[in-house]
């Protein structure tokens, strides 16, 4: 029984980290209409940043500054934001699908740096030994899991509240305005380029926080954590949950991560012994089919954006219009 609770604690921790990243993406896509195809780049910048700032020093290795936890995590967030600022300056004037592929490319380039720049990132071996927060103070493995879950939920809660405040502020209304109709927004004196850049930076910083939390749980980061599959997972979470709605984003994160991991768990129970060796491939087929069916059945997501009176068009229509413009 305690085992099940312990696993659930862990599951929620991971799902919580995914949910944080999904909230960041929701700010990008749901509220601003930025098609960010390089989620994993910002996750990775946060993860590596936190590790380099807070990890132990090692011979022949840059970094290992052993800064206090909150400083390291904050530093990771800032690094992810800074990366987004540079990326934004380069790519934000591109249209949707070009922006997506450019940001995707930046993620691939970042992975190549992580894999090859050994002085900075440890190369393919990665960096290790991050002091997990409170681990020294807490003896009990189960209790540590609970405390860490609380940390993740606290961060998730803070980010949620900040985004809700942000999108209901004049800044948030301006973001939606440029998402719906950029020309009109410009006519009203809004500067779409600057607004988009800020949205990109803030959302990326949130993704960086997710990356920082992730390394502080695993105490290790390597190029293997920077594979594009993460970008796909986070997008699937947002689309299934419902873009433009924070509750949808979090729900989607828990659901998709659940499907992703539980399908593996279920197959070890249900599939006959002769098929166990194929279980990996079958699991991928199940995940792929489920996402496709979900998109056919309910393309607007489980919890779609709630449209207030001032917003006549739906997010979806706006999205299709803007790619067709």
């Amino acid at each position: 029984m305690i085992g099940l609770v312990s696993y659930l604690t862990f599951f929620l921790t991971m799902a919580g980290i995914m949910a944080i990243i999904t909230l960041g993406l929701n700010l990008h896509w749901g509220y601003t209409g930025l098609f960010n195809g390089g989620v994993v780049a910002f996750f990775g910048a946060g993860a590596y940043g936190t590790m380099i700032l807070g990890g132990p020093s090692q011979p022949d290795q840059f970094g290992g500054f052993e800064l206090p936890y909150l400083v390291a995590l904050g530093g990771g967030v800032v690094i992810a934001g800074a990366l987004a600022w540079v990326v934004g300056l380069l790519t934000l004037r591109l249209r949707h699908d070009y922006l997506a592929i450019s940001t995707f490319g930046i993620a691939v380039a970042l992975e190549a740096v992580a894999r090859n720049a050994q002085w900075l990132t440890g190369g393919a071996r990665g960096l290790r030994g991050f002091p997990r927060p409170f681990e020294d103070q807490i003896d009990n493995n189960f209790l540590f899991g609970v405390v860490f879950l609380l940390i993740v939920l606290t961060v998730l809660g803070l980010i949620w509240l900040s985004i809700e405040r942000l999108v209901n502020s004049p800044f948030g209304r301006a973001l939606r305005a440029i998402r719906e109709d950029e020309v009109a927004a410009r006519a009203l004196g809004k500067n779409p380029v600057r607004l988009r850049l800020w949205s990109l930076v803030i959302g990326a910083a949130i993704m960086g926080a997710g990356g920082g939390l992730y390394v502080s749980y695993t105490a290790f980061v390597s190029p293997q954590d920077l594979l594009p599959i993460l970008t796909f997972q986070i997008w699937a979470m947002l689309i299934v949950g419902g873009a433009g709605n924070n509750r949808g984003a979090v729900l989607g994160a828990v659901l998709i991560w659940g499907v992703w991991t539980l399908s593996g768990f279920a197959l070890t129970r249900l599939a006959p012994a002769s098929m166990q060796i194929d279980a990996g491939s079958i699991q991928y087929i199940l995940i792929g089919t489920l996402i496709v069916c979900m998109l056919i059945w309910r393309p607007e997501g489980l919890l779609p954006e709630k449209i207030k009176k001032s917003q006549p068009m739906t997010a979806r229509k706006a999205a299709s219009n803007s790619t067709r413009e």
């Binding site: 896509w29 098609f35 997506a100 796909f232 997008w235 699937a236 689309i239 194929d278 491939s281 079958i282 991928y284 087929i285 995940i287 792929g288 089919t289 489920l290 996402i291 496709v292 998109l295 056919i296 393309p299 607007e300 979806r316 229509k317 999205a319 299709s320 790619t323």
Partner: peptide, 29 residues
């Protein structure tokens, strides 16, 4: 086709991801 009738291009992009996963792993099987 089904998604095109109901939803925007982004849903198509993600559906295509899913389709790619399925095709690749069917080939593996």
């Amino acid at each position: 086709k089904r998604i095109r009738q109901k939803a925007g291009p982004l849903s198509m992009v993600f559906a295509s991801f899913g389709v790619a996963l399925v095709i690749r792993n069917v080939i593996v099987l």
